[in-house]
Amino acid sequence: MTIQITRLVRILMSIPLLLLIPLVAMQFSAEVQWGLLDFMVAGFLLLTAGLTIELVLRKVTEPRQRVLLCLAILAVFLLVWAELAVGIFGTALSGS
């Protein structure tokens, strides 16, 4: 397998593994209460961020631009996640 396909497989395999964290936490704590929609949204966000980073790594050749674009993607991912979780910006999407 090529490096690109291996990296893509790793991205796709890491999403369910990351979603196992809140699933396991729900078994041990009443403070973690995720529903099906929460898992679907989190999976979509992780998939979108992962595939966008994969696209950047495939198409952008200059290392500095790669790093900056990947950091920007991660920053947007974290901001959207935080907004959905606790509403840091107070938009209609906030979870609180």
Rank of each mutant, 00 (worst) to 15 (best):
V9S: 12
R10F: 12
R10D: 11
R10L: 13
I11M: 13
L12N: 07
M13N: 13
M13I: 10
S14Y: 02
P16Y: 00
L17Q: 02
L18K: 03
L18W: 12
L18D: 06
L18Y: 12
L19E: 09
L19H: 02
L20D: 04
L20N: 06
I21H: 03
P22I: 05
P22K: 03
L23K: 11
V24F: 15
M26T: 08
M26I: 04
Q27I: 12
Q27V: 11
F28D: 05
F28P: 02
F28C: 09
F28L: 13
S29F: 09
S29L: 05
S29W: 09
A30V: 10
E31Q: 09
V32M: 03
V32L: 02
V32Q: 03
V32E: 01
Q33Y: 04
W34F: 14
W34R: 01
W34S: 01
G35A: 08
L36F: 14
L36H: 09
L37W: 11
D38I: 02
D38C: 03
D38P: 05
D38S: 08
F39V: 06
F39H: 08
M40H: 01
M40F: 14
M40I: 15
V41I: 15
A42K: 00
G43S: 00
G43V: 03
G43M: 02
G43P: 03
F44N: 03
L45D: 06
L46N: 05
L47V: 11
L47G: 14
T48L: 15
T48E: 09
T48M: 13
G50P: 01
G50W: 01
G50L: 04
T52S: 14
I53M: 15
I53Y: 00
I53E: 10
E54A: 12
E54D: 14
L55V: 11
L55R: 11
L55A: 15
V56A: 14
V56D: 02
V56H: 01
V56S: 07
L57F: 10
R58E: 12
R58N: 12
K59L: 15
K59N: 09
V60T: 14
V60A: 02
E62G: 07
P63Q: 10
R64W: 12
Q65F: 12
L69S: 13
L69V: 04
C70S: 15
C70N: 10
C70I: 13
L71M: 12
A72V: 06
L74S: 10
L74A: 14
L74W: 05
L74E: 04
A75I: 11
A75D: 02
A75G: 07
L78N: 05
L78Y: 08
L79V: 10
V80H: 01
V80L: 08
W81D: 02
W81H: 05
A82W: 07
E83V: 02
L84I: 04
A85M: 11
A85V: 06
V86G: 05
V86D: 11
G87N: 08
G87H: 02
G87L: 06
I88D: 04
F89V: 06
F89G: 08
G90C: 10
G90K: 09
G90D: 09
T91Y: 05
T91L: 12
T91M: 07
A92M: 11
A92P: 06
L93G: 04
L93I: 11
S94W: 08
S94A: 15
S94P: 03
S94G: 15
S94I: 01
G95C: 06
